[in-house]
Design a binder for these strands. Structure first.
Lengths: 195, 195
DNA sequence: TTTCATACATACAGCCTGTATGTTAATATG
DNA sequence: CATATTAACATACAGGCTGTATGTATGAAA
């Protein structure tokens, strides 16, 4: 019997199928290592379908990274929700971020391939709209400053860089001990006073 | 008339010619964008020569990155030499690093392509042997701690992450104002007390 | 019902990487 | 000094991948 589906349904279905397969492969093998032939074969489609839905391989990758960033942001939000003080919310959010980045392949996807393939300004844009927002607001609250204060924004950026480096260091585990305590200590020192 | 050179001389000459061309191209176009055919054509050789001297494209890239890291380390050393206090040396070293990263293409080479292509552990190794050493020692001196203290090492790593993010932010200039002052302020806060 | 657009498949052209093989000149050996 | 061997490169080959152009069938629209 033949399936009879609307065009919109078909599009959405294959789009998501492609995205799911792409996510899985990019996570497990990295951007350059996964070729479009194997990608589409996994879904049972052809490269024609892929290039009909996405401009090129990079556009597909961008969609995957954006989706992953959104997931991570949700995990941070969930992890920091219901904290006592605003400083606690910050620390718990940081820990949630560390946990989120334990998902295999996420470090490479978000911190290595992403910046190299999409460029730092695109990654910054994505971060600002997802996980970075949490950090910025949390920091602003602790410091009793406005969230749009450029100084707060810069500080949030620098702090997020430390988070990422800590995550990276643990991922390869070739450095010294536990970065999380050190990050927490640094964080406390930084927000101790308003300026 | 025929040139008559020793094998060792020939090897060294072509090796450096390849490295120079690779450096120039990787700096101006990035790792993936430069193909080996155009690379060798620029030197007047063939791909055979390249693959005789380097295992693969990645090995050539590694050599370029290591060389560049060494250059940057020298520039930092020169920039921080002859500083008054040890804190001044730290600040001047940071400024020297910022200046060093103004060379076009260096940001992409060292902070984007490098980590993505060589991996974070390899980049960490290179950094430890070059620029990172300066920072670690400078930090240890300011804090009156031992340079091999793992806590100092971790802190140096985190601080270097902030430097890199600041450099990246300025490179794309899509963020808020001047990160250098913010980095300096953060640095002063961090080293204020021993622990 | 006919016309048009959408969703996909097929086929093609170009490029790149890594390897295998050939050639010439330098070096080692007897 | 003659010869054997190795090093330095060039040439040629075998995949593999990306992006585009073209073809086809099905849903939507007129």
């Amino acid at each position: 019997m033949k399936e009879r589906r609307s065009n919109a349904d078909r599009s959405n279905a294959t789009r998501h199928a492609l995205l799911d397969a792409a996510r899985e492969l990019f996570l497990s093998e990295g951007f350059t290592a996964v070729g479009t032939p194997v990608l589409v074969k996994r879904v049972g489609l052809t490269r024609g379908a892929l290039y009909h839905h996405f401009a090129d391989k990079q556009a597909l990758f961008l969609a995957v990274v954006e989706e992953e960033a959104a997931r991570i942001a949700v995990e941070i939000e969930d992890g920091s929700a219901g904290a006592g003080s605003s400083l606690d919310a910050l620390i718990q959010g940081a820990n949630a971020y560390f946990r989120a980045m334990e998902i295999p392949g996420r470090v490479r996807l978000m911190l290595l391939d992403g910046p190299a393939v999409l460029g730092p300004d695109e990654m910054r844009r994505i971060d600002r709209e997802t996980g970075g927002r949490e950090l910025r607001h949390g920091l602003a609250e602790v410091m009793r400053r406005d969230g749009d204060d450029p100084e707060v924004e810069m500080l949030a950026d620098l702090v997020s860089a430390m988070f990422d480096r800590a995550v990276l260091a643990r991922d390869v585990s070739t450095g010294p001990g536990d970065y999380r305590e050190m990050v927490a200590a640094v964080l406390k020192k930084l927000v101790r006073e308003g300026k």
